[in-house]
Design a protein around this nucleic acid. Structure first.
Lengths: 192, 192
DNA sequence: CTCATATACGGACTATAGTCCGTATCCGAT
DNA sequence: ATCGGATACGGACTATAGTCCGTATATGAG
């Protein structure tokens, strides 16, 4: 959910900001459960039509909020020091990615769930899925050129918010304990 | 979504049947999109309260319908001939399971999506997830006792309806081509 | 500065899932 | 056969996402 490209009209830009600010505040105060579109519109002093012109749907707002919290990690993946950044061998980078990604998801679990929940396809066409998947695909391809894409998709499945929620909240695994175990599985998918 | 256990009152039993029958018919005529609770209630000649006494929610109805379509496969897994049934080595049974399961999901994709969609947890507490997961866990444990459960969960992630939908409907893989590729990944998770 | 038009705004409206509770029905005990 | 309490029924009600469209406003041209 990148900001619309063309020079927005001044009122539009202002309203977009208002909405995102209100969303952050609303989330802080009420949690995800309190983030209703009506409430958000009223806090942002904006009509619902305006909400939906700026964001395709509720998940779009969550996506926009997540974007801000993820820039960092993108940068570290592309230009930071190894093993997350370039310079380490594929499997090591993969393990580093798995850790960073799991920490990211777990730190924003409710928001990510919101993006995945809306439509079964939520996971795939939002929140930068193509970027993550492609990154993993490239790392997998270092080890085995064939079937890298499908293996990358399999890995992203395992790292889905729904699965992590299951492990963290339902089965009560500690993140610190979970990470190495998942890393092992993820790396084994690439290498096997 | 097993039928409630205690001897149901006669009217209750009759209504439950009516609802399921109407659901089957409605699905056949209108597809999943047309399966609304109001419409279902009216076709079944039943109030909405009755719907919700018999099924916890919309996903519960989908679950009940799926139950009927899955008994068979359960039986073949537990007592049928190998490699799906007992008698073959773990990895072979795992591959056979992956195939059977993928065929089942793909043949009932919309219905399964309905059960997974409702709440992020949909996948985990409905449609017999525990049974499938446990089966996979046992097969994995034949190969490597440690971490069998988590590996089983990872495998079930990859076989989620959302992921299969992505592969089949969005990326347009053919089921026949997809199956062996996924089998390979699944088996490698168990063995690695 | 004024005006025309593209752009954006607001909020009533629709569709749908799920809840609530007063009323009706069933059924075992007498 | 009757009766009383447990069980189940129905449908109006609530909550919420997302749509629609008549109205208002920004902005660039003249």
């Amino acid at each position: 959910m990148a900001p619309p490209q063309q020079p927005l009209r001044a009122d539009a830009r202002r309203n977009r900001r208002r909405i995102l600010d209100a969303a952050v505040q609303l989330l802080a105060v009420e949690g995800v459960a309190g983030l209703t579109m009506d409430e958000l519109a009223s806090r942002a002093q904006v009509g619902k039509g305006t909400l939906y012109r700026n964001f395709t749907d509720k998940a779009g707002i969550a996506s926009a909020l997540l974007d801000d919290r993820v820039r960092d990690m993108h940068a570290r993946m592309l230009q930071g020091p190894p093993p997350l950044g370039p310079g380490a061998p594929g499997p090591e980078r993969l393990a580093a990615f798995a850790e960073a990604y799991m920490r990211h998801i777990s730190g924003n679990l409710d928001l990510v769930l919101l993006t995945e929940e809306s439509s079964p396809r939520g996971r795939f066409d939002r929140a930068g899925y193509p970027f993550w998947r492609r990154h993993v695909e490239i790392l997998v391809a270092e080890v085995r050129a064939d079937g890298a894409r499908m293996r990358a998709e399999a890995i992203m499945s395992i790292l889905s918010a729904a699965q992590l929620e299951q492990w963290l909240r339902i089965e009560h695994h500690e993140l610190g304990e979970l990470i190495p175990r998942v890393q092992e599985i993820v790396v084994s998918i690439a290498e096997a």
